[in-house]
């Protein structure tokens, strides 16, 4: 079985984030990067399928600037067989994937000559939280998509998934080829073993530019974006907590309920 994993490199969630002077992007000068945590689930799930089925190949597809190479090495160390990196950086400028639409168009084009039975992507990327790229890719490739998968079983012709939905789960199946997105809980991503880290050094990355996959850079970057960020700001700092005074627990509870109704308007 040929499995493709879509991966995005995002700022490490544990590292502090600063807004750039342009006010429409984050300052990436000193950013620490990591694999999008949901894509780690996708990588793990692809590797689990490969290990269970044997005779399978896991191909990683990613779009991004030079520093994505670091995330690819980690994916190789985890056990990915091949990696395709669409590098959209020239002179420190990203000229390709700047919004969900341009990103999905690039990925779809890159997948034209990659054989696949199943595409696995994270349900969303934790940096811009658009939730859109996997669905747009499925749409462009005319594939069925099952999102927020917490469990799957794959045969040679179809995939059965447990999908998390509001307040419960649904059991959904689709014919292959298909695209699924992973939800937290589907697996525990492995740690790359040190020997695999050393071996990853020798693996080659198939690096391509937009022209190499038949795309005209003129239609990408800011020209191709359908979503433009106008400004960015940090969420407001959390205010001080409130300690409820009262003579008995019952009285305090009463005051709390009142405050939740009147002040917080949550009940």
């Amino acid at each position: 079985m040929n499995i493709v994993v879509l991966m995005k490199q995002v700022p490490d969630t544990e590292a502090p984030v600063e807004i750039a002077e342009s006010n429409v992007a984050i300052d990436t000068e000193d950013t620490k990067w990591a694999i999008n945590p949901y894509d780690e689930f996708s990588l793990e799930e692809a590797l689990l399928i490969k290990e269970a089925k044997g005779d399978s190949k896991v191909t990683l597809v990613t779009v991004g600037p030079d520093h994505v190479a670091e995330a690819i090495r980690v994916a190789y160390a985890m056990g990915v067989d091949e990696a395709i990196h669409i590098n959209d950086e020239i002179d420190d400028e990203v000229y390709g994937a700047v919004d969900p639409h341009t990103t999905a168009a690039i990925i779809a084009a890159a997948l034209k000559d990659v054989p696949f039975d199943l595409i696995i992507a994270g349900q969303r990327a934790v940096d811009d939280d658009s939730y859109l790229v996997p669905a747009l890719v499925a749409n462009k490739l005319n594939l069925p998509i099952i999102s927020l998968v917490t469990k799957q079983e794959t045969t040679d012709t179809e995939i059965n998934c447990v999908q998390s939905i509001d307040g419960g789960t649904a059991v959904v199946k689709a014919a292959l080829p298909a695209l699924i997105t992973t939800q937290k809980g589907i697996n525990e991503p492995r740690y790359p073993n040190f020997r695999a880290i050393m071996k990853a050094k020798k693996k080659k990355v198939d690096e391509r530019e937009l022209e190499d996959i038949g795309l005209d850079p003129e239609n990408f970057g800011i020209n191709g974006a359908k979503v433009k960020i106008r400004s960015m700001e940090f969420p407001p700092e959390r205010g001080q907590g409130k300690i409820i005074e009262g003579s008995s627990p019952a009285e305090k509870a009463k005051i709390l309920v009142n405050l939740l109704k009147e002040e917080a308007s949550v009940i």
Binding site: Y191, P192, N193, F194, R195, I197, M198
Partner: peptide
């Protein structure tokens, strides 16, 4: 052990990790 914290400087011939001393 699974991630490779034992035998770090030991050659792969003996199932070590084959890494340098600084690692």
């Amino acid at each position: 052990g699974e991630i490779g914290l034992f035998g770090m400087f030991v050659s792969e011939k003996y199932d070590g990790q084959g890494m340098d001393y600084i690692s």
